[in-house]
Design a protein around this nucleic acid. Sequence first.
DNA 1: GAAACCTGAGCGTGATATGAA
DNA 2: GTTCATATCACGCTCAGGTTT
Lengths: 348, 348
Amino acid sequence: MPPTPGVPEGKRPTLADVAARAGVSVALVSIVMRGAKGAGAATRERVLEAAREIGYRPDARARLLRSNRSRLLGVQFGLQQPFHTDLVEGVYAAAEPAGYQIALSAVAPSRGERHAVETLLGDRCEALILLGPQAPAALLAELAAQLPVVSVARRLRPAVPGVDVVRTADDEGARRAVDHLVSLGHRDIVHIDGGRAPGAADRRRGYRTAMNRHGLADRARVLPGGLTEEDGAAAARTLLGDDPRPTAVVAFNDRCATGVLDAFLRARVPVPDEISVVGFDDSHLARLAHIDLTTVGQDVRRLADLAVGRAVARLEGEAASDGETSGNETVIAPHLVIRSTTAGPRNG
Amino acid sequence: MPPTPGVPEGKRPTLADVAARAGVSVALVSIVMRGAKGAGAATRERVLEAAREIGYRPDARARLLRSNRSRLLGVQFGLQQPFHTDLVEGVYAAAEPAGYQIALSAVAPSRGERHAVETLLGDRCEALILLGPQAPAALLAELAAQLPVVSVARRLRPAVPGVDVVRTADDEGARRAVDHLVSLGHRDIVHIDGGRAPGAADRRRGYRTAMNRHGLADRARVLPGGLTEEDGAAAARTLLGDDPRPTAVVAFNDRCATGVLDAFLRARVPVPDEISVVGFDDSHLARLAHIDLTTVGQDVRRLADLAVGRAVARLEGEAASDGETSGNETVIAPHLVIRSTTAGPRNG
DNA sequence: GAAACCTGAGCGTGATATGAA
DNA sequence: GTTCATATCACGCTCAGGTTT
């Protein structure tokens, strides 16, 4: 690597190097680099030029160390979950205009939530945004005692003090899915659930509520599923053996629904002609032209905005709304996205 | 939040707080926390206990600031690419045993590679691991002048000085796919390519080479594709209009192949009965029971290991092998994973 | 008085030098 | 000499306070 002129070998340039080159004090360079006021236009230009020449780049960590604010939001997410990666994108977009940086920490089979959170804490994040956390409430409470914590898409019952929750009304989402199917003429509607996944309990409940309301309580049926394609496909294969088959399926999420779709297609059971399928999330997957899944949309951008907003509000010293210090819950409405995997039943 | 006893309000505990509580010097606490030698067993225990009591946690940033080594590897990856998220998992697994931390920076539609890299540099990463970077060679060269850079899955021709490349032999992978199909009796084999995506050119070339070798040069046909399901589905729809149709497709990657599969299934063209499909990557997707895609496997774990290994080797001062200071290329062999989307042609 | 600049201190660590048992 | 412990400085930066026009 070619040594940069005027800079000690092997070290990246610092404020001091820029200062020396521009013939000003370190503090002044700091002012210029931050774009703060207190420097003349001419000097400012000279400093910026010097910085450019030697390839100066601010050290984010030193910066954070000095100012007691770090302006860092820690985000925990599942590497393999499209809904999470969609959310991460939204969080980036929401955080940067608000003047916050994002530290990402992934959860994967070989890397648990505990580990992910530890890393974020070590990085001096000011707040934690946890996407669909599975951690026990006690752990969340412990974390909340140290810094603001926002749980996205995971409801906490009972509420955990200090943990804000931002989520979609999962029960309402499931209800809308059922309402839609009933309005198309369906009566035999099955729910393939998400087991213990965040949101699964509410979606199950919403499904049952809606079936009851339509007088279909005795036809309600919940099949164990999960949040992957495999889970959906397995459940669908069970359905294929039924006689008569249900005419519609509400799946836990889009991945699960995709698995259902695929199992049906392979068995030559046309969707939606013989059976309708509804997903949940409106993730990237559902929107793909060749899947084109009717699904319950979560407003990802809004969830991300709210999550960042709650974290920032706590940080800027705003008391939780209602003067309540305990956990706050923000629930946003889902919306049904009708695509091509639903239609009226054959013998409607 | 309940104030921790013995710690200044609103601040997280520091070495000094632990020292005060344990009745020792700050330096000694530092020694204990690092597990370095130079502390008595009894004192060590006392310090650790004090630390536990007040909830002390080392400040990663201050730590990095002080030691001129940061032991941080910056990883740039595509949020929506399963192959990348698989790789990230491997990188985590490889880095931590080697004593390095990972800083993640995502690339998304709203967040370009430039931005992603800037963040990593600001975090004082010691080296950059770029997954499938699309950045121009000039930019990579510029980065490599500052710190070790490893490009994963993106070949650089001509080699860029200072940039190490770790990749799968894409051409060989495509050749193996074709060989497999030919051995099954196929002759009309189409390639749906990846356009300008990393690896696409080599896969195209490998496909053509193999077709030539089998004396099928005049049947070779490359359709423009891409790296998403939509791209694959679009290309597949083109094929559906052909008469006669090809009997086999080699897709650029698994996502693309999945799109192809889906388009065929929708058109009631049975796979593999009427047409065989081969993917590339052996990503999570391909392994799902209901997709069960024959594909060219990239050894993700090995790629990740090598990428981390190259970065670490550069950092630990090892000269590049062969005494060459310029970019080094490590190419690993792909392997064919035969699943259920390939079979002999009908009129074989 | 304001604008432009500088000095000095300190953020939480790690490393070295030095001293005491 | 070895083991344990401390004092002191430095890392790169920001900020409060001072000095000069």
